[in-house]
Write a protein that binds this DNA or RNA. Structure first.
Lengths: 122, 122
DNA sequence: GGCTACAGGGATAAATTTATCCGTATTGAA
DNA sequence: TTCAATACGGATAAATTTATCCCTGTAGCC
């Protein structure tokens, strides 16, 4: 994979959680899996902005970190189903709150995010 | 600053919140500010692993996104105090839960994180 | 003058994460 | 036989984020 050069911070709870859920699509993946969208293809359809490749990478990381696990059916064509581990389930209430907070404040958030795109006038 | 080339996702609440709090030190900054650690120098002492520069950058971003605001005292040597806006305050319960979740599962999390450092045996 | 405390930001390199492109494998259906 | 469906991962480029280094400015103290 990738050989780290900088130390990983793991002092406090905030460091630790950042390590496992701060990826571009990780909270989305956890959310959809918690909603019963379990197969890779379905997850991809639900997150069309993400490439197949990145989703696979982030699913693997979630699996390495034991937030999700999968069942690989031994058949052709392949069939795989992801599900949340107990640890993964335990974090869902918080991720749901994050999503709700974002929805609740979506107007404000879209406004401040748009400002980033405005180039300073010449 | 930096001129973006890729579009910013802002479909759902999870996209939006990611944009404003997924920085290496943002949740830490929000946490300490919520605890009354308001001056830049104090924040730096509380997050010694982070460089002065990055903290400034991330504080500016939090300010741009209106999660924090600051009072600049017109005096020498300079004095600045950050505080949470209403929007910033509204997110603290969730950030506190994230920290608690990380603390609660710290043993597990440290274990899985350490696995990342193990180089495959020759 | 030189040093400290305080806060801030430019410039650039390095690290890390994502994006893109392409190739593998198997079964069944057209 | 060629194509679709299903899932996986290598290799490399590009984008983005962080790390590093260094400089500015002021008031007071020695």
């Amino acid at each position: 994979m990738y050989e780290r050069k900088l130390p990983i911070q793991e002092e406090c709870g905030l460091d630790l959680i950042r390590e496992v859920v701060f990826g571009k699509w990780k909270i989305h993946l956890l959310y959809y899996i918690s909603q019963g969208i379990s197969r890779p293809g379905q997850l991809q359809k639900n997150i069309p902005e993400a490439s197949r490749r990145v989703l696979n990478i982030q699913l693997n990381q979630l699996e390495d970190d034991e937030l999700v696990a999968k069942t690989v059916y031994n058949q052709q064509p392949p069939k795989v189903e992801y599900y949340l581990t107990d640890l993964g389930k335990s974090i869902m209430p918080i991720i749901n709150e994050l999503g709700q907070w974002g929805d609740t404040h979506s107007e404000h958030l879209r406004r401040v995010i748009k400002k980033r795109l405005i180039l300073p006038e010449a």
